[in-house]
Design a protein around this nucleic acid. Sequence first.
DNA 1: ACTTAGTTTAACCATATGGTTAACAATAGT
DNA 2: ACTATTGTTAACCATATGGTTAAACTAAGT
Lengths: 203, 203
Amino acid sequence: MKKIKDENTEDQILNAAKNIFQTKGMDGARMQEIADKAGINKAMLHYYYRSKQLLFEAVFKNAFSLLAPQLNAILNDDSSIEDKIKNFTANYISFIIKHPYLPNFIIQELNRNQDFILKLKDRGFPSIEKFKKQVDEEINKGLIKPISAEQLFINIMALNIFPFVAKPLIKAITKSDDKHYKELIEERKTEVANFIINSIKTT
Amino acid sequence: MKKIKDENTEDQILNAAKNIFQTKGMDGARMQEIADKAGINKAMLHYYYRSKQLLFEAVFKNAFSLLAPQLNAILNDDSSIEDKIKNFTANYISFIIKHPYLPNFIIQELNRNQDFILKLKDRGFPSIEKFKKQVDEEINKGLIKPISAEQLFINIMALNIFPFVAKPLIKAITKSDDKHYKELIEERKTEVANFIINSIKTT
DNA sequence: ACTTAGTTTAACCATATGGTTAACAATAGT
DNA sequence: ACTATTGTTAACCATATGGTTAAACTAAGT
């Protein structure tokens, strides 16, 4: 009863669906297009995933499960805040270069359907508690200037994620072609960490 | 031949279209829903705007023409960089509180259709040249630490715009209800400017 | 060989959707 | 009052779309 194939149909579908959903979003995606990209019949999509909604959710959860560990790297790692910021910045940018549609996809779809995030709020969902303690500790030790952990976290996310989400806008305003945009992003692997640390480090 | 009315049909349509397009995006919006919200017949949409695409473009241009002056406030004002950052941060956040769907709408749609930005690139489209000169000048005068104008501009945009774009994510990770989220944002009116200035100000 | 269970296909279906049409209403100029 | 122009409506149309069905195919178990 097992199919001996290079890749089973279910995965072919999921990969095609990832591709289409992440570039066009839930509303812009067409089941026929996904089927075509997977090289199979449209009925197969429903055979394996029942509905567009369920197929989409499979893709979304999959995408989020890639992003979550990245965020947990700031929130739950044991290294110092300075080290975390340096590592996260370099790692996250490399990570997104490999998955360019991820941040946009997640942000867009979370905005489209606010309730949707409830379906994710468990197993490994990033949470800020530990980070809060760490920030307060380092402030007390005089290692960093006073700042709320929430604001610091928002700032770290913003500086790292935004340049990808707003790529078209940034390219237009800075009059960059793809090459120059890529250089800007590459620079940010160190630039962003320095910018943050400059701001919060005690002198 | 003029209609004496509280509001002419064309504007009613545009307002309804704004509402629907900005919350649901081009792909998620339905002409029927726009007509219903405007309280008119669906044929009127086509009578006044010919097609969904053209109606959408009217809404988009309108939205962008609100955002552009905000960005130009950093790029082309005559005040010092420090003052610009302080003013922009406070103003922009107040501005978005009034137009909460704006940044998301623009970013989402620019990502959906990359070519679309070409239709905007004229009259008052924000451009970074003047800001570049100013940054270099202030660095030379020793007022701020060395930083590329592009990176500084990206950082300013990121810290200000991202918290709105990523609202659902931030709310979930910081376990905030609407009230706490609003407080976080309110804090940022001064927090963000301090964060940036701390980082670039010479000591 | 035959049965059984899972897999795949083509054809089909109901509905939604953007858009059109033709008739009708209102208004202003004459 | 008559006419031309503009505004508005209901009915309609072609197509796209998510989803279903019934039949055919495949591979393993016996």
